Structure formats: C-alpha cells, structure tokens
Amino acid sequence: MNRVPAIFCVLFLLMSRASFSQKKPAEWYVTANGNLYMPVGTRSKAVYPILGYDKTTSPKILLGGIGIGAAMLKPLSNDLSFKGQTNFSKHTYWDEPVMMKDYVGASLGQFQSGSSDYGLGIAGMIHYYPVEAFSIGAGISAQINVISFSRTPGMYIGAEIDPGFVVNRYYKTVLPMVPVELSYKLKKLLFNVRYEAALMNRIKGDLADFRSDKFSLLTFELGFQIH
C-alpha cells in the first residue's frame, strides 16, 4: 500500500469531520516557529542550534531552523478539537564532516558542513483538553521537501576557505510523519511544542540500500489569533 496517498486521505477525512461541528466557530492563527532537526538512524549528522555562536565556523552566527505558517482550531465537542496546520520552514543540521587538504595535499583538518532543508509541512491532529487552556494532540503529518542544500568547501583564499553550496538530490519529496503536540492558549496567543517522527527512510534510490536517515523534528511555535 502506498502510504503517502493514505496520509492525505486521512487528513481530508479529518478536515471533513471538523466541518460538521457548527457549535463554535473555528479559530485561525498565524504562526512562527523555531525548530530542531533531530537525526535518527545516522551517525553523520548532529543537532544545529536555532540560534547560536561559534567562532570556529563560517558564518560565526548560527541561525538554524525557523519557519512561518497558519493553523486552524475547530471544536468537535466540549473537550475535543480538530487542528489543521501548514507551515513553510527551514530545517538545519550539522552534516558529515569533510576532511580538507590544501593545494599541496597537506591536511587542513575537518570542515563542518551545515545543511538546510526548505519545505512545506502539513498536519491534521485531534486535540484533547483536560483543562480549558491546555491540550494534547496527535495525528498525522507530512513534510514536503522543496529544496535541500549543504554548505561545502568552495575555493581557497589565502589560508581561508570560501564555502560554497551543493543541492542534495537524494531525499524523497514527500515524507509521512507522526506528530504529538502540547498546546497552551492564552487570550489571543497559542503556544505549541510539537514532536514529529518520520515513518520511513528519507533517502531515495539505490543510496537507500546502505544509508538510513529517519529524522524527527522538535518544533517550538507561537501563534497569533487573527479570527
């Protein structure tokens, strides 16, 4: 069974179910997020900070995963709501270090490559409210990869390395995920902490036979109610 179409079928059914509840109007939010790419099934990658500083890297100011999006909350009952959301985000991580040499073959040490994926995330979740302002939700989601690139050594300028970029073409376009989310509502604000785990190896083609990358995402999100 093709799991990707199944993901979107279930999302559609959940959204259709939400439309039947007319007791309370839906709430709409614009969102901003910071996120951490959590490597799973690979030893070559490491977590990149959302915001940090490292004097040994270029650039020295490290700006990691960030994104913007929109969310909708539709009450289904007194203690259940359907949440649909989408976001466009950058997910950044430390990729496999590259050993560098100068023009005569002398070692310059390792070059730490920072990689970034730009993609669209969609999710459908059912949230349960044990108390009025706090909820926990779970459902299904998908990450749609738009482009991914790695920062790589480009050319030498004196003793310095001028980094370049290379596009990563060995990642699948659509990857199904399972999200679990904690939310807290405060007047017009919505605070979310969401963890999403991939259901399959994101590497495609023959490379997937000997390389695994089942990543997950930890997202910290702030929503502003607009309706």
Results as ranks from 00 to 15, higher is better:
residue 160 E to K: 04
residue 105 G to S: 10
residue 108 L to R: 07
residue 104 V to Y: 10
residue 158 G to R: 12
residue 102 D to L: 06
residue 77 S to N: 12
residue 2 N to L: 03
residue 16 S to G: 03
residue 203 I to G: 03
residue 95 D to L: 01
residue 58 S to C: 07
residue 223 G to A: 10
residue 23 K to Y: 02
residue 13 L to H: 01
residue 60 K to M: 09
residue 217 L to M: 05
residue 10 V to S: 12
residue 185 K to S: 05
residue 67 G to R: 12
residue 202 R to Q: 11
residue 201 N to F: 09
residue 17 R to M: 09
residue 222 L to G: 03
residue 119 G to R: 08
residue 133 A to I: 01
residue 196 E to C: 10
residue 218 L to M: 15
residue 144 I to Y: 07
residue 147 I to R: 08
residue 122 I to G: 02
residue 125 M to E: 06
residue 46 A to F: 15
residue 226 I to D: 10
residue 189 L to R: 07
residue 170 Y to V: 05
residue 218 L to E: 15
residue 87 N to R: 14
residue 6 A to M: 14
residue 195 Y to P: 10
residue 14 L to P: 01
residue 12 F to E: 08
residue 219 T to I: 12
residue 34 G to Q: 02
residue 201 N to K: 05
residue 212 S to P: 01
residue 103 Y to I: 06
residue 220 F to D: 00
residue 178 V to N: 07
residue 156 Y to M: 11
residue 25 P to H: 01
residue 176 P to Q: 01
residue 125 M to L: 14
residue 48 Y to I: 02
residue 22 Q to N: 14
residue 46 A to K: 15
residue 168 N to I: 07
residue 38 M to S: 04
residue 101 K to N: 10
residue 86 T to L: 09
residue 216 S to D: 02
residue 52 G to E: 08
residue 103 Y to F: 01
residue 122 I to Y: 00
residue 110 Q to I: 05
residue 146 V to K: 10
residue 224 F to M: 12
residue 161 I to G: 03
residue 186 L to A: 08
residue 154 G to C: 00
residue 138 A to I: 05
residue 174 V to Y: 04
residue 117 D to F: 06
residue 188 K to V: 11
residue 198 A to I: 02
residue 158 G to T: 01
residue 8 F to N: 10
residue 155 M to E: 04
residue 101 K to V: 08
residue 65 G to Y: 03
residue 135 S to D: 06
